[in-house]
């Protein structure tokens, strides 16, 4: 019997890392500052913008604690929370594209997401990595069984892309929970990505003019992109210095590279969802989160960042390498 199970439910040192506490103060500060800023700018905003901003803020007050509480509580709840978000994102994508009518493919993607979470809980990287190609081949194979090739490629492609982005991609956030220092790493990713969105919005409003992707996302401007790139990289590098203090990553070139990955990945993730929505012909993926749209409209920027940052940090440091792997599967002699 190894200490793996106790680790998964270890909540006593949730706030032990200084970086975790710094992030929580930043989040708390943002929640306090946002209404003050909105009140200060009230005169300069149109009635519609103002109402939209308040609705967004109220939704933030609900979704931020709802996601952060399980992420910070213990590794097992963090992995479960990521899996739930993966499922919600898949559900939205499937309903928006019509893929949800292919029930067996939906069941396979959902099973793939659950297995990704199980591999993460098990601390079994081999299975975690293998699930990406395995789920895709199961999708491709299962889709031939009804013997109706019309639309085969579309069904298989939609299901595969959905699993790759929401199951495998986002699932990397869950696997990070195998590292005892996971809380600070996840907060670094989540907070930087959301700030990246805000920086892009604010910079775009302030000095953005030239549109870079008028067909994909007409609201985005060069000024917004560059402003977010500079500010997010600076923020992520500075906070990365706190998170990874004294490790191989604690060098400015590495930290700046990390910041660039987060900022570029976040903005591209935004454009990926923008392209998906334009292609389908919808404005928001759903109406689940008032002011935001659907869960995907909130998670879009994390889609590409999750696996990219996972491997960048993973190559340098690894995740939970000092811990025994395969917590559960070794118990059943598998």
């Amino acid at each position: 019997m190894n200490g793996g199970i106790e680790y998964l439910f270890s909540f006593k040192d949730a706030f032990a890392q200084p970086a975790t506490r710094v992030f929580l103060w930043i989040i708390l500060g943002a929640f306090v500052a946002a209404p003050i800023v909105m009140l200060a700018l009230q005169g300069r905003m149109s009635e519609a913008t103002r109402r939209d901003a308040w609705v967004r803020y109220r939704t933030w007050l609900l979704i931020a604690p709802a996601f952060l509480a399980p992420v910070l509580f213990a590794p097992a709840t963090a992995i479960a929370a990521v899996a739930v978000v993966s499922i919600l994102c898949y559900r939205e994508f499937a309903r928006a594209t019509g893929l949800f009518r292919e029930r067996s493919l939906s069941a396979i993607v959902a099973a793939g997401i659950v297995l990704v979470a199980c591999a993460s809980l098990d601390h079994w990287y081999g299975l975690f990595a293998a699930l990406t190609p395995l789920t895709v081949i199961v999708i491709a194979a299962a889709a031939v069984l009804p013997d109706s090739p019309k639309g085969y490629l579309q069904r298989v492609s939609l299901a595969s892309v959905a699993f790759l982005l929401f199951g495998s991609g986002l699932g990397h956030l869950g696997y990070i929970a195998n590292d005892p220092g996971y809380r600070a790493i996840l907060l670094l990713i989540l907070v930087s990505v959301q700030l990246n969105d805000i920086f892009a919005y604010v910079c775009g409003k302030s000095f953005g003019r030239r549109k870079l992707f008028p067909h994909t996302s007409p609201g985005k401007t060069l000024g917004g992109h560059l402003g977010a790139l500079v500010l997010t990289t600076a923020f992520a590098a500075a906070m990365g210095h706190v998170v990874f203090e004294g490790t191989a990553l604690d060098r400015w070139p590495a930290l700046i590279a990390l910041g660039l990955i987060i900022s570029v990945g976040g903005q591209l993730g935004d454009l990926v969802l923008g392209s998906i929505k334009r292609d389908i012909g919808v404005k928001d993926m759903a109406a689940t989160l008032p002011g935001h749209g659907g869960f995907l409209d909130r998670m879009n920027s994390s889609l590409l960042v999750a696996p990219a940052v996972f491997h960048f940090v993973g190559y340098a440091l690894g995740y939970g390498l000092e811990r025994e792997p395969r917590v559960f599967s070794s118990l059943v002699g598998f």
Binding site: R95, A96, G98, I280
Partner: peptide
């Protein structure tokens, strides 16, 4: 694409 007829409704 044939989205679900209810995608733009709140829960």
């Amino acid at each position: 694409y044939k989205p679900a007829a209810d995608t733009q409704l709140q829960p």
